[in-house]
Design a binder for these strands. Sequence first.
DNA 1: TTTT
DNA 2: TTTT
Lengths: 168, 168, 168, 168
Amino acid sequence: MLNRVILIGRLTRDPELRYTPSGVAVTTFTLAVDRPFTNQQREREADFLNIVTWRQLAETCANYLRKGRLAAVEGRIQIRNYDNNEGRRVYVTEIIADNVRFLESANSGGGGQREEGMSGGGYGQSPQGQGYASTSQGQQRYGGQRDNQDPFQDDGKPIDISDDDLPF
Amino acid sequence: MLNRVILIGRLTRDPELRYTPSGVAVTTFTLAVDRPFTNQQREREADFLNIVTWRQLAETCANYLRKGRLAAVEGRIQIRNYDNNEGRRVYVTEIIADNVRFLESANSGGGGQREEGMSGGGYGQSPQGQGYASTSQGQQRYGGQRDNQDPFQDDGKPIDISDDDLPF
Amino acid sequence: MLNRVILIGRLTRDPELRYTPSGVAVTTFTLAVDRPFTNQQREREADFLNIVTWRQLAETCANYLRKGRLAAVEGRIQIRNYDNNEGRRVYVTEIIADNVRFLESANSGGGGQREEGMSGGGYGQSPQGQGYASTSQGQQRYGGQRDNQDPFQDDGKPIDISDDDLPF
Amino acid sequence: MLNRVILIGRLTRDPELRYTPSGVAVTTFTLAVDRPFTNQQREREADFLNIVTWRQLAETCANYLRKGRLAAVEGRIQIRNYDNNEGRRVYVTEIIADNVRFLESANSGGGGQREEGMSGGGYGQSPQGQGYASTSQGQQRYGGQRDNQDPFQDDGKPIDISDDDLPF
DNA sequence: TTTT
DNA sequence: TTTT
């Protein structure tokens, strides 16, 4: 009845932007969050948490986040399940984010440069300095938008993600 | 580098109290947390989240929580992995709690009565009304206490949990 | 750039519902939140935090919350200032809530019964058991809705709150 | 009964380190946290929140934080009151932090360089890259340590802060 | 399987 | 696999 997560960590890879059959943007990435203690070998381990963002926030994350960057993520924990190709039910825990803060701009170090450049367009609404991005959390929650939707339970619009892309 | 979760939900079963080989108390339970929206069939789904508590907090949770009770849980998300008996690596996501609030006392409804009664002892420090329990979060975090420890990587003290109890 | 508060506590009085000149509902109440330790006299003190809710959430809180009830509040901290009648600038710290959970239903004890009864109407959408209420946080945040607005900087619609009601 | 705050913002000034009469370190600073929307003049306002840290965390914050730096703060809201020199009761809202993350290192820009240099010593345990600091939250909460203590209700040890330093 |  |  209340489910709130706040994380700060670094992306382990560039975010992946996809679209559901009906054209809704979904971006996923993994955040490495250091544990607050060291293990018996005195190494600091990390947890690797799957983040999912939808719609406008998905587009913005895909545009501005890169592997290695530091980000803050606010959202809720959700468990999704599907049957894998061996007929076994698999459970996946994800953070459905409704707010993502870019804690490093592209030129403040911290992350790998993106080889292929900034892929035109999206930078019209470029954030200066610390970035900012969010979703209508309330609508997600109480309106009809299902941000945990199964992309295959969708209407008949053209499909632009292939089967082996999903479940993401 | 920051990992904070706050949940409110209901226990799906009575909590389970175990001890590591070295005698450290560990209590686990599952919290059902309703999602903030309904699915396409207009049903409200829930996420079932695994909660782990250690030491004094584990004892208190085992004493005061029961199936059906409403509780608030504060902690951090952690991913544990182990190789199952088919040699496959399994990932388990858990909430390591450092603060648990009992939002219903035993007689305010909301939960099943415990058939076997209150099993002596522990109720000396019984909370009245809304309960309260916590752990030294700081110590967990920065002292040497590893609340994510694998109970089998432990010293040579007598073992009181059997193999098939673990990983919990 | 990130501002998140989560509280659980009890209302010190019935919530107050008002309307801005342009007809926007605002409900305020105070939440008593026990401190996690006792003072030198071994008494447990509490902090009394001012909560502000807007629009639909304001209506729901006014309908379902009462003095003494336990509630969870999610929101952000905001500092408002105004010049009092002595020409002195006064700073007020408030929690602008976008999610409120009713942790006790009217008949689960915990709070004073409301003497005057349930004041018609609003109970059509009455929650059963644990209540639920929220706002479009995203819209608040990124749309044009200013949930920290000064009710006097409003348009020319009929006024239904008097001067001495404000600042709330 | 639950009181949790998470903030990300920038310091408006260098932190101030003081000591209570009994020698306990206290560091205070103000965090500017941008609001998630713009006002009617299309300007982004900020809330200026008073942060208080104690003991080791106080020392670390005093050593590593500077005006302009970006930091994440975890803690609880507390309201302190005192009678000012006009005999008027004044209420002060503060965030008692138990975890502070330094989101910019000294040389990653974002903040003013400290003119007078790094004042010897404390840098033995210097964090590399993103900094890390915390307190034993649990002990604060449930042990006898009163991190909201009034420094004047203290034992008879030598006093090293003068009256006009307090209340901080 | 991973980030700094 | 689940709670109300």
